[in-house]
Structures are given as structure tokens and as C-alpha cells.
Design a protein around this nucleic acid. Structure first.
Lengths: 338, 338
DNA sequence: CAGAAAGTTTACAGCGCTGTACATTGGCCC
DNA sequence: GGGCCAATGTACAGCGCTGTAAACTTTCTG
């Protein structure tokens, strides 16, 4: 336990508490002799500043909350890591909060700031929409991620989903595929992300002069790879034919790979597959998975840039940043030879 | 910002701060009339207690640290989720800390408690050994996970690695496999976990009257699936033959699946594969992966039981708990028909 | 109905730190 | 030598909350 207090050090060194504090904080105007004496006392006693007291006195916590749907989803765990590392670099700690896509939990997210637990919040909402967010969020430094809610009043970072989906579909087209499926729309739970990606997919096809076939937009039961595998097999079983699949995320793509394999189709020979998020999963599969790759380090950097400005008092309308993306080519939809 | 303070509520309601505090804490002996009046004032003003101040006054933070090597490793992110959920159930929040298997970072883990950031620490060490831990850890409530360091003085939770490895190997034997490889030993970085698992593997073979072949213990470059795939292919290429592989974790197993596939071998027909940790990965692969499954909910529960007792002042020697494990059967090493 | 017991409320001293205001010292310039 | 400024150090009032002790009320008991 941090039994040793500032005043204990001060007494041992024969100085005031404030001087010890100054030494701890590397305040420049401390006489060298004194500094060493105080430092010796600190080391002697094994003094550690009590962060709670410091926080109360300063009003700053040095912590930021990261609220995500699930910590054990590959994309979010990779994102968490990036953000935690970027935050550490800037002297903050990250408190990860799981919402489990639950409305109540999402509403609770912003309370943390009110309770003085954190200085700012990074929030990837699923349920809350722009209006709810705009009303709840008053003066909490907040940066939103994802596409679910984009209130104009709040800072927000994402990739250009439409463009990314379009580029992926265009790559499939460039590979000579003409019957391209989209996997998938979760039954009764169509998210904004899915929507944007679907739009990009459609744009690519239309611009290539291909008629849209609604049957090629597959519907799945839920967000599990299993349901995607089932949907893929079911589609093939009822006679639907396609030679390319654009998936809304890597887990969906794994489901597609399983479904195709079990239906006796070869990837990429018979069907090319593209995933989304470029998580570690993409290199673990058979065949390895071509995937849309958001620039995660950049995402972390931009997000923290915005948040830090807000925490430093920046006021004003919401800033909206697009972060670059690219296509990471692997076996399931190989790069074009040139 | 939580501008509203306890005293503001008190003044509005015309009572003392302490009475408001009592209402906030549901202290039973508050006159009903007063309680409603105070509650109204709280609601009116939108009062939220300042947790930092509370912590300073009580000396409790309500937080526990979870220090793990990597947040984006599937096993650790699943573990984090379990532990966070169990902790939430008990009224704690979890502060996740990445050590990246770095010695310095591991040593820093215990400082958090000293700084009063958390009430207790759950720590999965990689580098620190029992002796270091025993000396550093004085009176911080601490529970260790994993097999790296087991100082007798500290509470510790793990599964029986030797037994689990033995059972897995025995399952491969029961499937009629006789040439069983172990994947693998990381070159120059053999961990205690790997060692325990290797021992169990060897016990099973010896008890089955099979002579140990050191060549069957494969060496890999690092902890990536890629290096495991390479090691598998290289082994096959140099003429090594085997019909079963026991892997030290699921990521290694994914590498094995890739390597076997690329070498033209079928799983499980030619070679049966068993992974370790039963992470989500295991159901995503082709074929799906049989894996040793630690009872993660139980692990979380036991860990928090121990930690809570320590945080409540329990003294005494380290308690060492084994948590149950089982084998989750999937395609790569199917369950025996009966 | 006195006295004890239980219920209810308050005042206030910290928790350990930092920010501010202020005191002291020494160096430098004319 | 006086005056001024920068450097150095200190005292102390909070930050917002809770625990303790004590005051005051009401209820119960014989």
C-alpha cells in the first residue's frame, strides 16, 4: 500500500510538501542540492504519489474511456490495442468499457465522465442514434467511431465505407467476376454500417453496367460466422449462383469460406471472397483472406488528436474525419497481375 | 462536467451533506419524507457523486487491474471479457493493462496498486519468475494466472496443464494415431506453459508404450501462426511423418492447419489436430478445430473469489487453485463414436 | 412516566495532493 | 549601497466526499 505520503517525505528531507511536489514534477526552479536531498528521501521511503488525491486536487484523471460493443471481437480488440498504445504515448490510460450493443449500457457510457472517472470518451455506438447522442452529450469531450450515429455536433472518425465497398467490389469485377453477392444483411437488424457498404457495392456494379440482383444480397440470422456459412450454403442450395462475395466483416467472410468449402466450391477459383477490417483472422484462414483494411494506427491517432483538443477545451461544431483505407490482398481475391 | 456537488444538493434540500450522502447510499435510517425531498433535489440538479473524491475519502477505488500480455490475442480478449463481466457483477471495474510480455511493463504492473489506482491486481505474467514476484509483491492483493510464475506466497489460478495435454494426446491415440507431433517449442523462448504441456504429451505417449521421438517436437521461430505453418511444412518436407499434432495454443493450431493443407495433407484423415484454449478461432477454421477448453467462466469466478478475499484483508500463504478443463470436439480430431 | 434504547440528523475533521499567494534570498546594475 | 527582478521556498486553503462523534427525537419498557 502507498503508506508513504508527501508529508512524510517532506519531514524526512526537512522541506515543505510543496517542494517535494515540485521535485516529483520536475519543476525547474529547485536548487540542485535540495533536489538530490529530496530525491534521496523519496527513494528511501519508496514514496509513490497517490493518484486519487492528485486527481481530486487537479480535476484531471489522465484516463479516457473507450466504449466498444465487445472486447473479444477481433476488430475491436485490435482497435483497443491501437488506441491504448496511442493513448499511452500521450500520457493517458484507457479504461475499456463493453456495451454489448446494449442500449442501457450505451447510455451509461457518458455517465463515467460525469462521475469524474475519465477526462474524455471514445465511443463506438451501435444502438444510440445521432439525436440521442446529441442530447445526452453536453460538455463531455467525446469522439465517436463507426457509422451508427453521426450527430453534426460531435467529433467523429470513420473510413469512407461507401468508397471502400465500391473499391472492393471493383476489385472483384477486375478479377472477372460478374455475379457478386453481398454477405450480408442481418435479419431484422440492418445497421448503418451494413447499409453504407451495401451502397458502395451497388454503385460499383451499376457503374460497371451490371444489373442489380436483389437475390445476391444474402440475409443472415445473426452476426455469427455459423449463420453466414448456413446462409451461403442455403443460397447455393436453392440454385443461386455467384462468383464473388463481398462480406461486411471478416467474421462474415470466414462463414462464407466455410459455406463455400462445404458446398464444394473453391476459393478463389470458383468464388472470390473479400472481407472487411483486415483483422488477424484474415491471415489465419484457408485460403487467406483479402480484406478491406482501415488504417488502424491512423484511426487511433486522429481520434486521439480530436479528443485531446476537446479535453483541452476546444469548443465548436463537430469535426468529421475520414481515415484512409486500403485493400490487403491475400489468396481469396488475389491482386491483379500487372 | 459534474458541476453539482453534494453540498449544492444539501443546500437545496435544506439538510446536511451527510444526509444527502446517506440517501445516495441507501442508508436505511433516513426518514421517508426527507428521503424523497433529498432525492428530488438530486434529480433536480442532476447530481452525480464524484468518484475521485469518494475514493480519496474511503481509500477504495472499486477498480481492479487485469494485466495481460496482449489484449488482441483471442485467448486474452476472451478472458478479459469474462473477468470484466464477473467483476462488474461484483461491483468492480476492470482496468486492462497490456504488458506485451515486456519485463519492464510487468514490473510496472504492481505500481498501480501502490499509486492507489486499483484495489487489486490480476496478473498473467510471462517474464517475471516466482522469485521476482515474491519480492516485489508485498501487500498488494494479487492473483496470478498462467503457469509462468507460481510463487508459493501468492494466490494463483490455472488449469492442470499436464493433465490437459495428456488427455488431448490420449484422444489422438484413441483415434488410432501413433506418430504424434507437438507444436511447438519457440526457438530460444521456451515458456513454462509449453513445458508443462510437453510433459503431459510425453506422459501420454510413454504410458501408451510409444517411444518418444524428439524430432516430433517441432521448433518454431516465434508465436505467429505463419511460423507454425512454415515449421509444419518444413518438417514434412524433410521427411518427418506424423498423423497427429498437439498444439500449444489455437494460433499454433491454425498454423498447423495451413501447413498441412499446403503440404497436401487432409485433416483429420491424414493428420488429426488439437488446439489449446478453445478460442473463437476454433470454430472459424476449416476444418473446425478440436481444442482444449479451460473453463473460462469458472476461471474468472475463482480468480475473483480469491482476489476479493485478499482485498477484504485476507492474509496468509498463497492459495493455488486448479480450474477444470475439457476437450471441445470439432472436426480436426472428432469425438470417438460409441 | 422516567430512563433506556433506537432512530435520525448534523458538524466537522480529514483523505493526500496541488495552486495560489506570499516570504525570503541572492545577483546584478547604476 | 539601494533598488529591482528572478530564483527559490513555504504556508495553507481547498478539491468533494465519508467516517466519527455527538446531538437531538422518538419509541419502547417496566
Amino acid at each position: 500500500m502507498g503508506r508513504v505520503r508527501l508529508i512524510d517525505v517532506a519531514e524526512l528531507a526537512g522541506v515543505s510538501m510543496k517542494t517535494v511536489s515540485n521535485v516529483v514534477h520536475d519543476y525547474p526552479h529547485v536548487a540542485p542540492a535540495l533536489r538530490t536531498r529530496v530525491q534521496a528521501a523519496i527513494d528511501d521511503l519508496g514514496y509513490r504519489p497517490n493518484l486519487t488525491a492528485r486527481r481530486l486536487a487537479t480535476g484531471r484523471t489522465g484516463m479516457i474511456a473507450l466504449a466498444i460493443p465487445e472486447i473479444d471481437h477481433p476488430y475491436f480488440s485490435e482497435l483497443s490495442r491501437r488506441i491504448a498504445e496511442e493513448a499511452t504515448r500521450r500520457g493517458y490510460r484507457v479504461l475499456i468499457e463493453q456495451t454489448l450493443s446494449d442500449t442501457v449500457a450505451e447510455h451509461a457510457v457518458l455517465k463515467d465522465r460525469e462521475a469524474g472517472l475519465v477526462d474524455g470518451v471514445i465511443f463506438h455506438p451501435v444502438r444510440m442514434d445521432a439525436i440521442e447522442l446529441a442530447t445526452v452529450h453536453k460538455d463531455t469531450p467525446l469522439v465517436l467511431l463507426g457509422e451508427a450515429a453521426i450527430p453534426s455536433t460531435t467529433d467523429h472518425v470513420m473510413i469512407d465505407n461507401v468508397a471502400a465497398a465500391k473499391e472492393a467490389a471493383q476489385h472483384l469485377l477486375a478479377l472477372g467476376r460478374r455475379r457478386i453477392a453481398f454477405l450480408g444483411v442481418v435479419d431484422g437488424d440492418i445497421t448503418v454500417s451494413t447499409n453504407r457498404r451495401l451502397v458502395g457495392y451497388q454503385q460499383a456494379l451499376v457503374e460497371a453496367g451490371i444489373e442489380l440482383d436483389p437475390d445476391l444480397v444474402l440475409t443472415v440470422r445473426d452476426f455469427s460466422p455459423e449463420s453466414c456459412a448456413d446462409a451461403t450454403r442455403a443460397a447455393l442450395a436453392r440454385g443461386l449462383r455467384f462468383d464473388g462475395v463481398l462480406c461486411r466483416d471478416d467474421k462474415f467472410a470466414l462463414g462464407a469460406l466455410q459455406g463455400l468449402h462445404r458446398s464444394g466450391l473453391a476459393v478463389p477459383e470458383d468464388v472470390a471472397v473479400i472481407g472487411w477490417d483486415d483483422t488477424a483472422l484474415a491471415s489465419y484462414t484457408l485460403p487467406t483472406l483479402t480484406s478491406i483494411a482501415p488504417d488502424k494506427p491512423r484511426l487511433a491517432k486522429v481520434t486521439l488528436d480530436l479528443l485531446e483538443e476537446r479535453m483541452n477545451g476546444h469548443q465548436g461544431v463537430g469535426r468529421h474525419r475520414l481515415v484512409p483505407h486500403s485493400l490487403t490482398f491475400r489468396e481469396s481475391a488475389p491482386e491483379l497481375p500487372r
